[in-house]
Amino acid sequence: MTAYIGPILFALFVWWFSTGAIIYLDGLPRPTFKWSMLGATLLLGAAFYGLWISADDTTVKGAYVAFASALVAWGWHEISFYMGYVTGPRKHACEDGCSGWAHFGHALQVSLWHELAILASFAAIVAMTWGGANEIGLWTFVILWWMHESARLNVFLGVRNLNAHFLPPHLAYLKSFLNNKPMNLLFPFSVSISTVICSVLATEAAIAVDPFRQAGFTFLATMMVLAILEHWFLVLPIPAEAMWNWSMKSRQAPPQEARRHDAHRHDHSKPHSPAPIASLRSVH
């Protein structure tokens, strides 16, 4: 049983913390973005290296390295998108009344470069792990990609919980592509497909006798469980976003700064009295 608990807890923590960390960094002042992006790019290089060296490593350590590397690689795409570096050719909201395929085309344009970058990373990971015995990193990236695309389509078609407040101000135009509905017709298919895949992965983890396969398939099954939960969070009346409320603190002015701002505003709201003549003379 301990062979499964470790990977499950590790996957849960990394999923929760990395999501919050990206939201937190994205809420910092924009001059900090270049440093966050630089750090993320260095980590991306380390992640690709980790995927490459673990391609033939069929130990439990190899499974952890491949899984973590894929998550870090995916994190680069999240940071580069939400900080506005790799988005798409369209950077403005959709006009009122726009619908149908035209609206879908506009939605695709706002993240086209982002999607192509994901495709490029996928090709790179395939090349680095091709023929290797350890494909945990590759399939982790694929699952994250599936979670991403399915969630995007569902919020575009309409779900109950959009969590639009997580969007930074410079991406506010994305709100015009989010639809608020109780559910959409794609949702049952998304959840059903994910559940079937999750069942297969969980079964593989349960019947595995090799520690590497136990850890690897547990990682993949856990990510699919999270994919299913994330989809249900979109439609159920559950305040799931509360798990990342701590990450929104970067968008709030520190108390001392807020007090200075209020004091400054208060000073400007009162008429200024002229300085005493004696004081003016003493300056000269």
Rank of each mutant, 00 (worst) to 15 (best):
H106I: 01
L12F: 08
H231D: 13
T2K: 12
A68Q: 09
L220I: 06
L226N: 11
H284S: 09
L144S: 05
A227T: 15
R30G: 02
P89H: 07
V65P: 12
Q214P: 00
T2S: 09
A275S: 13
V86L: 11
A123G: 09
K61S: 07
V14N: 13
E230Y: 01
G131R: 00
S279G: 10
A215M: 05
W52Q: 12
A215C: 12
P254A: 13
W35D: 04
A117M: 10
G45P: 11
V110K: 01
P188Y: 03
P255F: 12
G137M: 11
M243H: 07
D57A: 01
P29T: 09
P274G: 02
A242L: 05
T203L: 09
I136G: 03
S190H: 12
L226R: 03
H77M: 05
L174V: 01
A221Q: 04
P254M: 06
E149S: 06
G75M: 08
D262P: 05
G158W: 02
A63D: 10
L12W: 06
A205E: 05
K181R: 14
A242H: 13
S247L: 01
G20R: 07
N180L: 07
L186A: 14
A253C: 07
F177Y: 15
S150N: 04
P182G: 00
A221Y: 04
H284A: 13
S176E: 02
R251V: 09
L25H: 06
D57W: 04
H284G: 07
A3V: 08
A208M: 02
A240T: 08
E230W: 10
A215V: 10
I118A: 15
W16L: 15
Y85P: 01
V86M: 10
F217E: 01
E135I: 11
M223D: 14
G6A: 14
A40M: 08
M37S: 07
R160K: 13
V200P: 00
S121E: 08
S250L: 00
L186Y: 15
F13H: 09
D57G: 01
P276Y: 08
N134T: 06
W232G: 06
I143Q: 09
A215Y: 13
W146V: 14
S282C: 03
